[in-house]
Simulated scan of single mutants.
Amino acid sequence: MDVKCAICLLCLLHLNLGVDEVIVTSSGRRWPWDIAQTLTIRGRKQCTRECQIRGSACLAVNYKTRSLLCEILGSIPNNLTELTTDVTYDYIAMSSQTSVFSAAVCDSECSSTAGHCLQLSSGINYCRKKNPKCPTNYRFSAALNFCYLAVTTPADFLTAKAHCESLHSRLAVLPTMGYVDYIKAGMIVKIII
């Protein structure tokens, strides 16, 4: 008997709003050798940018999410199987990155596009645009910084995931009841749970 869970299909689309995403090479793993420098209180993007501006002196970083710790690595493993398991870290190789994070993105274009300039803890200025344009039929959630598409057709997980991927989006996986309550409260009027 094929059982379908009555879930609300919620496809998320992260817009490129002057912010590119860091590509994590291996989650829950790290390279514990040849740590050139350890930086504290850094976001993942700041950590990646710190590595990028060092050029060949930094080939990868270990990033510890909970404590915002950034380890600049002077060498990388020959094979990802050489990484050690540590669920508190993400290993981020610079060779995996598709974006170069710019040093100063606040300029006259930032204010002319209804953005506002923020200064990051590293001292770098960053322009966050206020009014993103979502694709047709998508809505924007400022709280999540995502465009989303609510589909009320019940589906099992794999079908829902495949549907979102066919739209170049990803399926929202709600990890706690708090997220479910947030969705129920404001983002979607008709939800099937």
Rank of each mutant, 00 (worst) to 15 (best):
Q119D: 10
E82Y: 08
I23N: 09
P154G: 01
Q37W: 12
E109N: 06
A60H: 01
G43C: 06
Y63L: 06
N16V: 10
I92S: 01
D90P: 00
A36C: 04
A142M: 09
A155Q: 10
Y182K: 07
Y148G: 04
M177C: 04
N79M: 05
R42Y: 06
Y179W: 05
A93T: 06
D20W: 05
R139Y: 15
H168P: 05
N137E: 14
V100I: 15
I192M: 12
Q119H: 07
S67P: 12
G123H: 13
T38V: 14
D20E: 08
V19P: 07
L13W: 11
Y148I: 01
T40Y: 10
P132S: 01
A60Q: 00
V105T: 08
V180C: 15
V61L: 02
S141K: 03
S27M: 03
M187K: 06
G123L: 09
L9A: 14
Y148W: 04
D90H: 06
A57G: 08
E21K: 14
K45L: 14
R54Y: 08
R30H: 12
G43N: 10
D107I: 08
Y126H: 11
S141R: 02
R170L: 10
S108M: 14
C51K: 00
R49M: 03
F101E: 01
M1C: 10
T81N: 15
L174Q: 04
L68G: 04
I23P: 02
V87F: 12
